[in-house]
Design a protein around this nucleic acid. Structure first.
Length: 820
RNA sequence: GCGGGUGUGGCGAAACGGUAGACGCGCCGGCCUUAGGAGCCGGUGGCCAGGUAGAGGCCACUGUGGGUUCGAAUCCCUCCACCCGCACCA
């Protein structure tokens, strides 16, 4: 019967042409009464060819987009490219090829493959972040942040990557102190750089996590990164030099237990404190050694606590005690004030230091368990002060802070781990910073009408501690916009995370030449209803984008407080159980499979492979299975279509169905219900596809026994349900059977009457073990079900000779007889 | 160390506290074929039984050990393994 062959190479281009010709997936910004829905996948960095992670990302997003269109929403599903960045620039350094050219080639490859995959994108909104029409507005937004004081310059100890020859944001340095991009060990440098004042938003970035539908682990990572801790700032005075040293502590309740004081090696006063004393040499040696140690060496928690005494003391403000000062590398300059009060009785680290240096350990909190020091739990204050002794330490903490405040010795304080975001980069391939430095006027913004400041071409891409832009004299030297005198452009470029922190806003109004966007248009789309991407952006991109959104909301440029209402983080695609990498030689390309089996198979398989938030191992045999399924769907559709004129699929009279027809139509409604729930409530695409497979299997099982009309209905339904995953073959089959376009059809709805059968299989248990199964009427009463169960021979065999002490009846499910 | 997650057949995985293993892979068998690495149908935990039958029965099983419940992969506690995040943050 079947010399019919499923031929994706013919089907897929056919439908891609229809969608392109008819601009099917374009969406206007004018409201039309439907709910708007914005689904977005993280924009790709265009390098080489798309990989399996991209296929998964866009297959997921496209399924969400299609489903939402068909349930009646107006869906925005755009695409663009995160096109500035180091890989293209490093390629230019090696080959001399302009980053614009290599980037353009990659973008074209991505475009070609996205079209081959049949992803439903509104291409009218496409852009690359490297295009002047986009970065003009990146620059404009930068100036807005300046105006508001959220962008500023300061000199600071910054992280410098010696390999990439540029500074990095804190977020771009790993816990081991290496460059997040290239792995080189990061150095410290004192430089004047541009920062964004993200710390102003620390509390809101923290608090607003509660209102968004994000994976818990991503929220935890952001909370950790922001690192809010509440406590007090307390001032310790060094009488000998007459200098006050504030410290931050979360445990002001232990102030009376402070027995020494420690400064970070980087603290600017350390050398001043020992100058001209017999300690000067030993302290200098220690500090110099500490400064040469890498973060990794220094950060090891189990490392012995080293340090040297400064030979000075400070006064403990609560009791006037003189306590000795030390410099030690376990105190970090970046956190708090770079100095701490040490309470060895109630802090493990201080305890370790005290042990190593023979310092006194004092108990000021009682331990109800009577354990040894250090004790970090709760308890009543002891040996502190008559006013506080006996008070629970939590209450004492509040009381002591209030007392410090009254006495002017301290105050309640909140500290954050989060630092301001360093955005200058001494590199070429990025967005120029739209600022001019004038010897007379200082830092002057480029006037709005002169934007964009276009990136000039250079011949030498090699960075030499300065951006290659610094060598372009006729670009750098410009008159000051304010006084007209000779001035120089800022030669750094912006961190590429700046580009990607607002692209989702630009998509809404991508072709607006007069503004970054129209606020009313954004109100229509923002926030993004569903954002999809990899968990590797949990901190960097996702935190920056939230900051930008809040800052722009404060400037009344937009209304949303959060960029991404819901976030889905996809798992990795692995190969042979390992991450794909060139060095392991286990990289496989989506193009191979799209070419061999078609895009529908590749997309469907990547969704069928398992729960999409989990890592999944690619299997060539698994791909075959999914391909077989799509081929079966197509073939039975083609056979049915060849058998006669298209029949209207919806006109089935449920009350007249019987036998195989009824079974088949029921199965179709069961599948509708299953797929709808799997799509709407959760990202359970694997089980949704399994349900469609069951429906197609059911059709084959009833090829001889069921009528033509029922079979057509079932197959058309299967095609309709599979459309979000395999849009080409679904469109083809649906058209063959109904003459209509599946994407123009509303999402099918399950008929509740057909979901319920008038009989069900009653499970008969004795003491929780299944002893029989028997068909039972759905309308049977509890008593009737129990009687039916008791009547089953195998049930009787297990009940005989025992007393039934209880009968649990779950209507529609089972009867459990408890015997003794 | 702290926080979070995962653990189910040979494999990827399903399973509102109610028939564990849907669906797919692999494997075995049959049909169709000149042929088939195509297609279609069936089987696939163990043990016992069954020869023309209306064919079944029993047992085991969701990392370990306990608990709650008529009933637990699912809820609670213990432990083990692996993965992820944070980690001298005062």
């Amino acid at each position: 019967m079947s010399d019919l062959r499923y031929d994706p190479k013919a089907i897929e281009p056919k439908w891609q042409d229809v969608w392109a010709r008819e601009r099917t997936w374009e969406v206007s910004n004018d409201p039309d009464g439907r709910d708007s829905y914005y689904v977005l996948e993280m924009l790709p960095y265009p390098s080489g060819e798309p990989h399996m992670g991209h296929l998964k990302n866009y297959a997921l997003g496209d399924a969400v987009a299609h489903f939402n269109r068909r349930v009646g929403r107006r869906v925005l599903h755009p695409m663009g490219y995160d096109a500035f960045g180091l890989p293209a620039e490093n390629h230019a350094i090696r080959t001399g090829e302009h980053p614009r050219d290599s980037t353009q080639k990659s973008i074209e490859s991505f475009q070609r493959q996205f079209r081959q995959w049949g992803i439903s994108i509104d291409w009218t909104r496409e852009f690359g972040t490297h295009e002047p029409r986009y970065y003009k507005w990146t620059q404009w937004l930068f100036l807005k942040l300046c105006e508001r004081g959220l962008a500023y310059r300061k000199e600071a100890a910054v992280k410098w990557c010696p390999n990439d020859q540029t500074v990095l944001a804190n977020e771009q340095v790993t816990a081991e102190g290496t460059c997040e991009r290239c792995g080189a060990v990061v150095e410290a440098r004192q430089l004047e750089q541009w920062f964004f004042r993200i710390t102003d938003y620390a509390d809101r970035l923290l608090d607003d996590l509660d209102g968004i539908d994000w994976p818990g682990n991503v929220k935890v990572m952001q909370r950790n990164w922001i690192g809010r801790s509440e406590g007090a700032e307390v001032t310790f005075r060094c009488e000998q030099l007459g200098i006050d040293y504030p410290v931050f502590t979360t445990r002001p309740d232990t102030l009376f237990g402070a027995t020494f004081f420690v400064m970070a090696p980087e603290h600017p006063d350390v050398m001043k404190l020992v100058e001209g004393t017999d300690r000067e040499q030993s302290v200098r040696d220690y500090v110099n050694h500490a400064l040469t140690e890498s973060n990794e060496e220094r950060g090891a928690a189990d490392k012995p606590k080293t340090g040297v005494a400064l030979g000075r003391t400070v006064t403990n403000p609560v009791n006037g005690e003189q306590i000795p000062m030390y410099v030690a590398d376990y105190v970090l300059m970046e956190y708090g004030t770079g100095a701490i009060m040490a309470v060895p009785g109630h802090d493990e680290r201080d305890f370790a230091f005290a042990q190593a240096h023979g310092l006194p350990v004092k108990r000021v909190i009682g331990d109800p368990e009577g354990g040894e020091l250090p004790y970090t739990g709760d308890g009543p204050l002891v040996d502190s002060h008559p006013d506080f002794d006996g008070m629970g330490n939590r209450a004492a903490l509040e009381a002591i802070v209030a007392w410090l405040d009254r006495e002017g010795k301290g105050h309640a304080s909140v500290n954050y781990r989060l630092r301001d975001w360093l955005v200058s980069r001494q590199r070429y391939w990025g967005c120029p910073i739209p600022v001019i430095h004038c010897p007379a006027c200082g830092t002057v913004p480029v006037p709005e009408e002169d934007l964009p400041v276009e990136l000039p071409d250079v011949t030498d891409y090699k960075p030499r501690g300065k951006s290659p832009l610094a060598a372009v004299d006729d670009w750098v030297n410009v008159p000051c916009p304010r006084c007209g005198g000779a001035a120089r452009r800022d030669t750094d470029t912006l961190d590429t995370f700046v580009d990607s922190s607002w692209y989702f806003l630009r998509y809404c109004d991508a072709n607006n030449d007069d503004a970054s966007w129209d606020r009313r248009v954004l109100a229509e789309w923002m926030p993004v209803d569903q954002y999809i991407g990899g968990v590797e952006h949990a901190i960097l991109h996702l935190l920056y984008a939230r900051f930008f959104t809040k800052a722009f909301a404060d400037m009344e440029l937009l209304d949303a407080q959060e960029p991404f209402q819901a976030l889905f983080t996809q798992g990795m695609i692995t190969r042979d159980g390992a991450k794909m990498s060139k060095s392991k030689g286990n990289v496989i390309s989506p193009a191979t499979y799209v070419d061999r089996y078609g895009a529908d198979t590749a997309r469907c398989y990547i969704l069928f492979i398992g729960p999409p938030d989990q890592d999944a191992d690619w299997s060539d045999e698994g791909v075959e299975g999914v391909h077989r399924f799509l081929a079966r769907l197509w073939r039975v559709g083609a056979e049915l279509a060849a058998g006669g004129a298209p029949a209207a699929a919806e006109s089935l009279d449920a009350t007249r169905l019987a036998g195989a027809d009824l079974t088949l139509v029921r199965k179709a409604h069961w599948a509708i219900d299953k797929v709808t729930n799997d799509m709407a409530g959760r990202f359970a695409f694997n089980t949704a596809i399994a349900a469609a497979m069951e429906l197609v299997n059911e059709v084959y099982r009833h090829r001889e026994s069921a009528g033509e009309v029922a079979q057509r209905f079932a197959v058309a339904t299967a095609a309709s349900l599979v459309f979000p995953f395999a849009p080409h073959v679904a469109s083809e089959v649906y058209e063959l059977l109904t003459g209509a376009r599946v994407w123009e059809q509303p999402w099918p709805s399950a008929d509740p009457q057909l979901l319920e059968s008038d009989t069900f299989e009653l499970v008969c248990q004795v003491n929780g073990k299944v002893r029989d199964r028997v068909p039972a009427p759905a309308t049977a009463s509890r008593e009737e079900l129990e009687a039916l169960a008791r009547a089953q021979p195998n049930v009787q065999a297990h009940v005989d000779g025992h007393e039934v002490v209880k009968a649990v009846v779950v209507p529609g499910k089972l009867v459990n007889l408890v015997v003794r």
